[in-house]
Amino acid sequence: MRVLITGARGQVGHELMRLAPEGFEAVGMGSAELDIANADRMAAMVEQVRPQLIVNAAAYTAVDKAESEPERAFAVNRDGVANLAAAAERLGIPLLHISTDYVFAGDAGEPYREQDATGPTGVYGASKLAGERALLAGCSRPMILRTSWVFGAHGNNFVKTMLRLGREREELSVVADQRGCPTSAASIARTLWSLARQYREQGSLHWGLYHYSGTPACTWHDFAQEIFRQAHELGLLPRLPVVHAIATAQYPTPARRPAWSVLDCSKLREAHGIAPSDWRDELRAVLMELGK
C-alpha cells in the first residue's frame, strides 16, 4: 500500500518514515518539496504519487511565533489540511491527521475526552482546531489523532532542550503548574501505522476524532527531573542539575499555555485496540538513541 506522508522531515514525520512496516511504500515529502498550503502544487503532487492513504504530519508548530504570524499558521494548519482533505476525497482515500491538546482551554480538572468543549487560548490552537473542522467537513474518511507534549531524538523538543541546559547549568527553573502527557514521536508513528495496517486489512476504520498521548500525566518540572535522572544514569549528563519549580506566571511567553493538557485516550483503545505507552520507557529509548 502506497502512503503519502506530508511533513516527513518533522519529529513525527521522521519516525513515520523510519518505522514504515513491511508491505507499505512510504512516500515522504518535507515542506521544501510539498507546501500543503499551496493548493495547486499539492493537488498535482497527490495526483502524481496516487497514494492509497495520506498521513499528514505537516504543521505550523511554532506556538509563540504563531501569535505574530497568524496568517501563516492558519495557511498551513487550516487551509493546508483542507487542501489535503479535498485531495483525499477526490481519490476516495483516508486522511490520517495529527492535532493537539492546544485545542482545549486547559482549565479542566479531568482528562479531556474527544467530545468535550474546545476553547483554544492562542493562535496555534485556534489554527489546529480550524484544521480539524476542515478535515471533518471535507473528507468522508477522516482520522484525527490529538496528541500532546511531543518529544523525540529528531527535531527540536523539550527533551533535547533540557539535555543541553543540563550540561550547561548546575541549576535551572522549570514550570510546575502545567500538567499534561509527554508523548514520543515514535509512539505516535507506531499508532498511525497500526491504524494504517487495520485499514489495509479491513478496508475501513472507525473514522473520526481520537486522543493519543503518553502515560502517566505529569508537570513539566516532573518531566525535566525524569529526563535528568535517566540521562545521568545513562552517562549523558556528568551531574544532576538542581531543578527549581516555578509558576507559569514567572516564565511569561507570547502564547498562553494550557494549564491542563491531560487527554483521555480510552476511545482509541476501545475502537482500535491501541493503548497509550509509558512515556518514561519511550524517553529511555530516545535518550539511548541520542547517546549513540
Rank of each mutant, 00 (worst) to 15 (best):
R2N: 09
V3F: 09
L4P: 00
G10S: 08
Q11G: 13
R18M: 13
F24E: 05
A26C: 11
V27K: 10
G28S: 06
G30I: 07
A32V: 01
A37D: 02
R41P: 00
M42I: 11
A44W: 05
R50D: 09
I54G: 05
I54K: 10
I54P: 01
V55N: 07
V63D: 01
A66H: 00
A66I: 00
A66R: 02
E67C: 03
S68H: 13
E69S: 09
P70L: 05
E71P: 00
R72Q: 15
A75V: 01
A75S: 15
D79W: 06
A88Y: 05
E89P: 02
R90I: 01
I93N: 07
L95K: 04
L95Y: 08
L96M: 15
D101W: 02
Y102L: 08
V103K: 03
V103Y: 01
A108M: 11
G109A: 14
Y112D: 01
D116F: 00
G122W: 01
G125M: 07
G125D: 06
E132S: 14
L135H: 11
L135P: 02
G138I: 06
R141I: 00
M143T: 13
I144C: 07
S148L: 06
F151T: 01
H154A: 15
F158V: 07
K160R: 15
T161N: 11
L163K: 11
R164T: 12
L165N: 09
L165K: 15
R169M: 13
E170M: 12
L172Q: 10
S173Q: 14
V174N: 02
V174R: 03
V175H: 03
A176D: 14
Q178W: 01
R179I: 14
R179L: 11
G180E: 08
A185G: 12
A186N: 05
A196H: 04
R197N: 12
R200M: 09
R200K: 15
Q202H: 11
Q202W: 03
S204W: 09
L205R: 12
W207H: 06
H211I: 05
G214W: 06
T215S: 15
A217Y: 05
H221D: 05
A224G: 05
Q225F: 09
E226N: 06
I227H: 03
H232L: 07
E233F: 13
L240G: 04
A247F: 04
T248F: 01
T248L: 08
Q250S: 13
Q250I: 02
P254V: 07
S261E: 10
E270V: 04
A271L: 08
I274G: 09
D278Q: 06
R284D: 12
